[in-house]
């Protein structure tokens, strides 16, 4: 298992093959093979994305053709202009940004808060309550979305911004994820802080939160991506055009009988870019080896 080799070595930088000042030819060959292997895998991984981009520049009838066409016969840059002028992309973008940001903030905030309760405070019924959270994840949404819709609708919330925010922000996922990350933070840290007379909220804010940068980043990336890409939620809840999200807008924009696939691909490319930005910002939080030792004081 060469993977584990890499892990453990990675913790002691001097031993990493590619960081070593003196290299044996065998290791250089190994490194070259390793990197070329990874590059091949990367190409394979990126191929569908590449096809998505070139398809956005094709004419509609060229996209689904046999055999598959990798490059357009003529480059249709006007697809991008068309979508900006014909479709209401700027409204959709703003709405989607609003939903994704608000949902991500709520999910991270309430999720990490509840997770602290589940992870660091022992109270009766904790496990049962937590299991109920997980249990709801096991129910397919399409089965209960009509009862849920009727409920929100009877409160007058369907076709409002609130519906999408409420729908997405309180899922069990964030609580579960953050709880598990808090579980891996040694109990002694919070115990010691309690002995020092810190309140529970103080422990959460001063001890636990500063340690959870990478997990909050992971939760934020995933929540943001999922909210951004959600189609069914907005489909069922939103009817007013000024509330449309990107996924909903694109799908409603295309025509029923001459399905405009070039436009779908153009929209998909445009809608992926913001996610990439969030991903790149978020992954800056993944810095190797944050030391919990410093906190033990």
């Amino acid at each position: 298992m060469s993977m584990s080799q890499v892990t453990s070595e990675s913790k002691i930088p001097e031993q990493i093959a590619w960081n070593k000042p003196k290299r044996s030819p065998a290791k250089i060959v190994g490194t070259v093979i390793g990197y070329s292997g990874m590059l091949v895998v990367s190409v394979f991984t990126l191929l569908p994305f590449f096809w998505m981009i070139t398809s956005s520049l094709k004419s509609n009838n060229e996209i689904y053709s046999i055999p598959i066409k990798w490059f357009p016969s003529t480059w249709h840059w006007e697809n991008y202009i068309h979508i900006w002028t014909q479709a209401d992309m700027s409204t959709w973008l703003l709405n989607t940004i609003f939903f994704s940001v608000v949902v991500t903030l709520l999910q991270v905030f309430t999720g990490s808060f509840a997770a602290y309760g589940f992870s660091k405070i022992r109270f009766r019924g904790r496990n049962a309550l937590f299991l109920i959270y997980i249990a709801t994840m096991a129910v397919p949404w399409q089965a209960y979305m009509i009862p849920q819709f009727k409920m929100l609708s009877s409160l007058g919330l369907s076709d409002t911004r609130w519906s999408i925010v409420l729908l997405q922000a309180f899922g069990a996922f964030g609580v579960f994820m953050m709880k598990q990350f808090y579980d891996s933070i040694p109990e002694e840290l919070s115990e010691a802080a309690r002995l020092d007379g810190l309140s529970e909220f103080g422990i959460y804010r001063r001890i636990i939160l500063p340690l959870s940068g990478s997990s909050i980043a992971a939760l934020a990336i995933i929540t943001f991506t999922n909210t951004w890409n959600d189609y069914m939620g907005p489909l069922i809840y939103l009817r007013s055009q000024n509330l449309y999200t990107i996924q909903l807008g694109l799908k409603l924009f295309i025509s029923q009988y001459s399905a405009d696939f070039a436009m779908i691909m153009t929209g998909s490319v445009l809608s992926v870019l913001p996610i990439l930005v969030v991903f790149l910002i978020g992954q800056n939080q993944f810095i190797e080896g944050i030391a919990t030792s410093g906190m033990k004081g």
Binding site: M145, I146, S153, S154, S158, L235, S240, K251, L252, I254
Partner: peptide, 21 residues
Amino acid sequence: IKQYSADDYDKQLTADISSGS
């Protein structure tokens, strides 16, 4: 005219009718 989805029109309408909207 309110815009509905061409492909998923019946899902939207089912939700609408079920809640009377």
